[in-house]
Design a protein around this nucleic acid. Structure first.
Lengths: 335, 335
DNA sequence: GCGCGATTTTGAAAGTTTGCAAAATGATAA
DNA sequence: TTATCATTTTGCAAACTTTCAAAATCGCGC
């Protein structure tokens, strides 16, 4: 660390022959400074190459222009499109708003030092529930992203995953499929549970029954998709369409089918979830349910800032809608 | 923002009937506090539920216990295993060392506000060269990760990518292949260039010539891998082995070959790069060149902290070695 | 010149750590 | 017991900026 005496606001004030407070006003673009003094201060700042000390500003103003993003610590989540888009979206939004983004990985034990940030975005409330509650109790502005939390008076921005499951199911039913299976996401997560729920809801609506083994529990990983799809293929009466709870899983299933010489969509239709940009490459462009993760992250940052600044006093509760993106991986079933 | 009068160190001092300095010493575990006073201070802290103000601590100490991680802004990098491991590794290391990790995405224009951190890790120097130089000039501790920078007096921790390319090439040559092709990474990046360089070096060493079209330029994306591999397959004399510059690319090539009924490794051997955990699933476990990204990130944080604290004065220059991980995607060529 | 409102400028307080000086304590010898 | 020296413990002041309240100044009409 380079040790040289910092030039302080006091040095500037002395040189400009005004008070410290006046210098501060010039720095912060207040109107109430007469022109001669303002010019003198600006001259002094330039001459001395003065830069305010961030810690002192934060201390004095009581704000810190920083928000936290808390991610659960299990490695798997980092390899998901969801996490990447979240980090990217929150990162870009913070950059735009000139906020420091303090990134935390929780191990389930450590208490995050929420004192260095004005508010916190939690990427998952399953693993972090204790921390969310602690932060709320401490009066820290909190926002849970991608989870709809009804049993806690906390802000959230999420996706209507039930609707997402319905969209996928409806589309496949509409194409004329009657043997529709699914490989689910991690059923410990809200998204995994709700996408399955929406999917089942559609089948019920159409009085269709779910054949034995038509729900394969996955965990969003490619491996689990492969395992689930292999089981589906080995059923006595295999499905003609598969809803995969993520695009990554869908891509792996397509790869598996290709290996076995099963054509997509002619033999089996596949629909994914996410709208991962990589789905338009590969052997067949994937039809999918798009969830606006990037925008969700941006909105989360903006909402949290509103909460921090007190412009928003009641918890924010927002649910974004996913939408169907039709590409080439689904068609009507063969006769 | 909740407005309530904070209890300050002064309140604690008053209650414990000692000076502010003594309270501070108790807080920071100094030995030189007599037991009676220490007990009194601890009682007061507990009774008043006192929590030090982070900004005040940072101001007074002149340190901030925070480091920055700067990523380039183009979306592609986020979808790479490299970026994910980097973020994860740096994140975990910071958590362990109780450092705030301030995450920045550069758009090539914005000057990062390095004043709120003690040092900065740059994830890429191609896009950020200007910022690196500016930070160095400002006397901020800097470390470039995953790039070996010889023309600038800056710390770096990188991987010997030339060696990585050699390892891949050597292994394939050793298996008896003579028609070996490669799909490269992004040749704008150091890693892409160097892996190709190492690969070429091996062929030269063995007096093997690179047939026309045997070097397909990719950019680490699955799409580019597919395009490149398709071109390789359409050559009059297609290769019997392919070195892909990343596992993601290798997986996509395997998928393509499977679709076409070409067996891996019987018909064509594939070797990847990274040791992405997902490569052990899929139709064939991938042989690959492992690069210790997570450890690299951890070491980067530790080294940067040494630099910040002044324990390390000369730039850190460290190059980690990749190593071969043999699985099932390579074999000797068919006769 | 004086009073008054509006505008501009100033001062004090807030927050915590650290180096240095001062004070208190302990140990030893006379 | 007292003086002296060494050691431990304590307190002061400085570091930096913003906010709030208070003071000063200005302009203007009477």
């Amino acid at each position: 660390m380079i040790k040289k005496k910092r030039i302080s606001i006091e040095d500037v004030a002395r040189r400009a022959k005004v008070s410290i407070a006046t210098v501060s006003r010039v720095l912060n673009n207040f109107q109430s400074v007469n022109n001669k003094n303002r010019a003198a201060v600006e001259e002094a700042i330039a001459a001395l190459k003065y830069k305010p000390d961030v810690s002192a500003q934060r201390l004095a103003s009581g704000t810190n222009n920083a928000i936290g993003l808390v991610m659960p610590g299990y490695p798997g989540i980092f390899y998901s499109f969801y996490a990447v888009e979240l980090i990217r979206g929150v990162g870009h939004a913070c950059e735009k708003l000139h906020l420091d983004l303090v990134f935390h990985i929780t191990n389930g034990f450590n208490d995050l030092n929420s004192t260095s940030v004005g508010g916190v975005i939690f990427a998952d409330i399953i693993e972090n529930r204790r921390q969310v509650e602690a932060a709320l109790n401490a009066g820290v502005a909190c926002l849970v992203i991608n989870n709809i939390v009804e049993d806690l008076d906390v802000s959230y921005i999420g996706i209507d995953n039930v609707l997402g499951g319905e969209i996928a199911g409806d589309y496949l039913v509409g194409l004329g499929h009657s043997r529709i299976a699914t490989v689910t996401g991690n059923l410990q997560t809200q998204s995994g549970k709700q996408r399955l729920e929406g999917f089942k809801k559609v089948l019920k609506k159409h009085n269709m029954t779910l054949a034995d083994g038509y729900v394969q529990e996955g965990d969003y990983s490619r491996r689990s998709a492969r395992v689930g799809a292999e089981k589906l293929l080995s059923l006595p009466n295999p499905p003609t369409a598969i809803f995969a709870a993520s695009d990554e899983m869908a891509l792996e299933i397509v790869a598996l089918l290709m290996e076995r010489g099963i054509k997509v969509p002619q033999d089996i239709s596949i629909i994914g979830f996410d709208d991962n940009p990589s789905v338009i490459y590969g052997p067949v462009a994937l039809t999918t349910v798009k969830q606006p993760l990037f925008q969700m992250a941006e909105e989360a940052v903006k909402s949290l800032q509103g909460l921090i600044q007190g412009k928003q006093t009641k918890p924010v509760k927002k649910v974004l809608k996913p939408e169907l993106v039709v590409r080439d991986s689904c068609s009507s079933p063969k006769k």
